[in-house]
């Protein structure tokens, strides 16, 4: 089907991904206020403007350097299954740590929407978020929502729609590392590209290799054999 799109929900644990997923899809993924409530993938779909958005609720991750099985599930999905759009759900009350993951997602995939959730609580705590400025800085749409109170959904769905139709083009921020690191990335990146092609961001893989993420190797090998076989 030409008009079915996969939208992955990523983010730190406990930022309201499952709540958002339920509110959007009307499905009943169980929620809980603790890190680790969702450990496997759940799917549900929404019809919007003659399109089907297939949402995928991923387990929460603090970073994309996977530490445990549930985090690996999330990382592999974003990197290797390549959803059409990745929604990064952030907790408005702890953005400092949350942006960390958002930046990592921006490094490896292009079509990203940053959903700043729990905006109701943030407002109560007097936290003011300038989403325009953040949109400019990050190069992808930044939207404030409250999953629990269903605030900001029309804009969110519309933005997803405009990304998949190409009306908006995301230009995610390319994080510049200190020169010394950039130099090493430059040395490795071409070799990575020779192996993985354009399927996965070579820059991101290069960074992870420098970073020492061994668990990634198996996945890449699997990808290569898969491509070789098909």
């Amino acid at each position: 089907m030409g008009n079915e799109y996969r939208i992955a929900l990523a983010g730190n644990p406990n930022t309201g991904k499952s709540t958002l997923f339920n509110a959007l899809t009307g499905l009943r993924q169980h929620t809980g206020n603790w890190a680790g409530k969702t450990v496997s993938l759940a799917q549900g779909s929404v019809e919007y403007k003659n399109k089907t958005f297939q949402f995928i609720d991923l387990p929460g991750t603090y970073s994309l350097f996977s530490n445990s099985k549930d985090e690996e599930v999330a990382r592999n999905y974003i990197v290797f299954e390549k959803p059409d759009v990745t929604l990064v759900v952030l907790d408005a009350t702890s953005l400092e740590r949350n942006f960390n993951l958002a930046l990592q997602v921006l490094e490896m995939t292009k079509n990203v929407i940053i959903c700043i959730n729990l905006i109701d609580i943030a407002e109560k705590q007097g936290i003011e978020i300038k989403e325009r400025l953040l949109t400019n800085r990050l190069g992808v749409p930044v939207i404030k929502i409250s999953a629990r109170n269903k605030i900001g959904f029309p804009l969110l769905l519309d933005t997803i729609d405009r990304i998949v139709t190409g009306a908006i083009e995301c230009q995610p921020l390319v994080l510049q590392y200190p020169d010394e690191i950039e130099e090493k990335i430059r040395q490795i990146e071409p070799h990575v590209r020779a192996i993985v092609g354009d399927h996965v961001s070579a820059r991101w893989v290069a960074l992870r290799l420098l970073d020492g993420d061994e668990s990634l190797l198996d996945e890449i090998n699997r990808l290569i054999t898969l491509k070789g076989a098909s």
Binding site: G126, I127, I129, L133, R137
Partner: peptide
């Protein structure tokens, strides 16, 4: 570096009243 960047984003884009 990632953290510094996050920190910067927060400083610019968020005000804590």
């Amino acid at each position: 570096h990632l953290h510094e960047r996050s920190h910067l984003l927060c400083q610019e884009g968020i005000t804590y009243n």
